[in-house]
Design a protein around this nucleic acid. Structure first.
Length: 106
DNA sequence: ATCGTGACGAACG
DNA sequence: CCGTTCGCCACGA
């Protein structure tokens, strides 16, 4: 394929497959791509996403293994993500974490 | 090719 | 229980 088969591309496609009302974590995405240890690379891919087509990818449905938002310095985006997830029907518990048992994907 | 970095994860003390 | 450390992978310079 002459197209960019970058790991990023696969991550983006995978994230797009996440249905509305569900969420997943970086480790799961990496595992679906065949690299269960590449969770960091997945996060890196989404980070790079902010400088590409951020609006066409449901990056907000991807959180860490704790079911929470782990941003590093962009609290603005973290807050935005929570708002979007709530708007999509995601429920947060009293700790603002998501229950993967009921809302996790796949 | 080597070094440093990063929206992670799991283990350890 | 919490904070810290190590390991993992991919990308940019």
């Amino acid at each position: 394929m002459t197209e960019k088969d970058s790991f990023y591309q696969r991550v983006y496609e995978k994230v797009k497959e996440i249905p509305k009302g569900k969420v997943t974590n970086y480790g799961t995405i990496a595992a679906l791509l065949g690299n269960p240890r590449a969770a960091r690379a997945v996060g890196y891919a989404l980070n790079s996403l902010k400088k590409t087509d951020l609006s066409e990818i449901p990056w907000q449905r991807v959180v860490n293994a704790q079911g929470k938002i782990s941003f590093k310095g962009d609290t603005f985006r973290a807050n935005l993500q929570k708002e979007i997830l709530e708007a999509e029907g995601i429920l947060f518990d009293h700790e603002e974490s998501i229950d993967f048992k009921t809302q996790g994907w796949p």
